[in-house]
Design a protein around this nucleic acid. Structure first.
Length: 558
RNA sequence: GCCCCCAUCGUCUAGAGGCCUAGGACACCGGCUUUUCAAGCCGAGAACACGGGUUCGAAUCCCGUUGGGGGCGCCA
């Protein structure tokens, strides 16, 4: 046992212990946040530990995306990957010897034993239990196999695992959130679970107990899905002579429809869009497959719903289909243009309330206000509309340089945008032209037409019909009349253009919108843009008139 | 199926037996403002799941029912 494990924690120490399966999930972010807040509130330490003990699922450097999202949110850990700490290694995959030593200790003292069952045998036993309407419990042998039995099994090619001899008694989980005075779980509900897999790696239950001891974790805040596992951990702690940390099992975050929020959903949304595009003839399977870069067979399997696409391929496909799949992982929210502090504020309210009708908080405020007593116990639904409102008000209250920093971050993720190459002064100008935006993405979608080449401008057919061609081309005639006046305007400034268009409208007995919209469509191709006169000024007289004349020409040739 | 957790407006929540004619926020609806989209302003509607107790008094405590969620892996 290491030195650190022998000492007794004197300060609060929390940890977030995800398995690295890609970007950080929204539910995981909330768990991490609560652990972070508790540690900071109580002057303790927040630890990040990577639970990468599943070799089948682990890919090289799988924790990178997770860490990227954590950092982006500002959930900075005091100990863990990249910063180190007293425990040395914070990846479970690098702590194998520690787990094996403890397992051996249990084996030697008869508190754990070898088992040699195959998957098929276990499946058969579970099936039998199910048809007999019994809960399956592993049949503990009267006599535990010896070390040489294990050797023989191995040489015969049988699987060899180590099972924990679970103490035969009821367990009470003293949970701060669930139950009153603890959750009692009967002895009949637990059994001898595996602690060391056939591949020699520890299972989650085992590694988590060893690490929480070694890392001096005092408070475990985790998802409610872990509540029923806790007796396993209590049993292990008892048999290993470890401390038991304080537990608090957090309620779950669900979708608005009450279903579980998972990456599957994003996958399904894109699949539906892909199928619709193929059915309607808007695209072909081959073209979509090319967008993903997938092999024909695996793409077909994905279309059938047999497998999921990796997130990068999914994002590319969504972009090609021009759909916005629901954001599930933190990276998705980042790519949509949410503000990290807002995201944290919003998810903090999912299960926690500071009281006094308080909602909008900075990280520092949350840190000083947080307490477990005010964490709720009911599952929460993830209301994207409310998040969007939070983001909108936060952006409205932010100064231009702060927004620019966020817009830069957005553009780094969207480097194909025509805005990506602009300098700070220009970005600031655009930001100021777009008050009231809901997402950083809105700045980009509103302004991008001003930065594409004049001949690359796409005229939206719906906008063209509605604004220019409707009513016997009234809009187009207005545009023609305005074009010649704009041509002779002495000073190409927003205020001057404003006055010109207003005068024109009044003179013609038109509403301002009737004069402005045709110009907007002509210079941006759509009905949505930053304020028109400023847009014209920014574009400049020549390019503005070139676009207007180009639009007129393209519609006159009919 | 068995076990566990949970239950206030559509959603997130405030509510620790009388301050509750149940408060706030978002959404929704109506109106105003407006060169587009947003944003903004004003206003309205909207909840204690149900049934029994306990108590002078219950959203609040107890029991049951119903509903929702989770667990029952060599996944975490």
């Amino acid at each position: 046992m290491s030195d650190i494990a022998a000492s007794v924690p004197t300060v609060v120490r929390t940890r977030f212990a995800p398995s690295p399966t890609g970007y950080l999930h929204i539910g995981g972010a909330r768990t991490a946040l609560f652990n972070y807040l508790l540690a900071h509130r109580l002057g303790g330490k927040f630890i990040l530990r990577i639970e990468d003990t599943d070799q089948a699922r682990n890919i090289e450097r799988a924790d990178e995306k997770l860490i990227e999202d954590m950092r982006w949110l500002g959930l900075i850990w005091d100990e863990g990957p990249g910063v180190g700490g007293p425990a040395g290694e914070y990846h479970q995959s690098r702590r194998l010897t520690v787990y094996r030593q403890h397992a051996q200790r249990l084996l030697d003292s008869g508190k754990a034993y070898y088992a040699f069952d195959t998957r098929e045998e276990l499946d058969a036993m579970r099936k039998a239990a199910e048809s007999a309407k019994r809960r399956f419990r592993y049949p503990r042998p009267a006599q535990f196999p010896s070390e040489s039995d294990a050797q023989r099994a191995r040489s015969e090619g049988r699987p060899v695992v180590v099972r924990f001899r679970m103490p035969e008694r009821d367990f009470v989980v003293n949970d701060l959130l669930c139950g009153e005075g603890g959750v009692r779980i009967a002895s009949s509900e637990v059994d001898d679970f595996v602690i060391l897999k056939n591949d020699g790696w520890p299972t989650y239950h085992f590694a988590v107990v060893v690490d929480d001891q070694d890392m001096l974790v005092t408070h475990v805040l985790r998802g409610q899905e872990h509540l029923m596992n806790t007796p396993n951990h209590l049993g292990l702690q008892e048999s290993l002579g470890f401390r038991t940390p304080v537990y608090a099992h957090l309620p779950v975050i669900l979708n608005m429809d009450g279903s579980k929020m998972s990456k599957r959903e994003k996958d399904a949304a894109v699949r539906n869009a892909a199928k619709a595009a193929i059915t309607s003839g808007a695209s072909s399977e081959g073209a979509l497959r090319a967008a993903t870069g997938a092999e024909p067979d695996s793409f077909a399997a994905w279309l059938r719903g047999d497998v999921q696409l990796d997130s990068a391929a999914l994002d590319r496909l969504a972009a090609a289909l021009e759909v916005q799949p629901p954001e599930i992982q933190i990276h998705d929210f980042r790519a949509s243009g949410y503000v990290p502090a807002v995201l944290l504020n919003f998810i903090s309210l999912l299960g926690w309330s500071p009281g006094e009708d308080r909602e909008k908080m900075s990280m520092a405020e949350m840190c000083s206000l947080f307490s477990l007593e005010r964490v709720g116990r009911t599952n929460a639904r993830f209301d994207r509309a409310k998040l969007l409102n939070f983001n909108t008000t936060a952006l409205a209250a932010m100064d231009t340089p702060s927004k620019r920093t966020l817009l830069r971050d957005y553009l780094v993720l969207h480097d194909d945008s025509p805005l990506a190459a602009l300098d700070d002064a220009m970005l600031d100008r655009l930001i100021d032209m777009c008050p009231g935006v809901r997402l950083l993405r809105d700045v980009e979608t509103k302004c991008r037409a001003l930065f594409v080449a004049d001949d690359a401008l796409r005229l939206d057919p719906a906008a063209r019909d509605k604004v220019l061609l409707k009513n016997e081309r009234a809009g187009l005639r207005t545009l023609e009349a305005l074009a010649s006046r704009l041509d002779t305007l002495p000073e190409w400034k927003a205020s001057a253009i404003d006055a010109l268009v207003r005068n024109f409208a009044e003179e013609q007995g038109l509403k301002l919108g009737d004069a402005a919209q045709p110009v907007r469509v002509a210079i941006t191709g759509t009905t949505v843009s930053p304020p028109l006169f400023e847009s014209l000024e920014l574009l400049g007289r020549e390019r503005s008139l070139a676009r207007i004349r180009g639009t007129i020409r393209s519609l006159s040739v009919v």
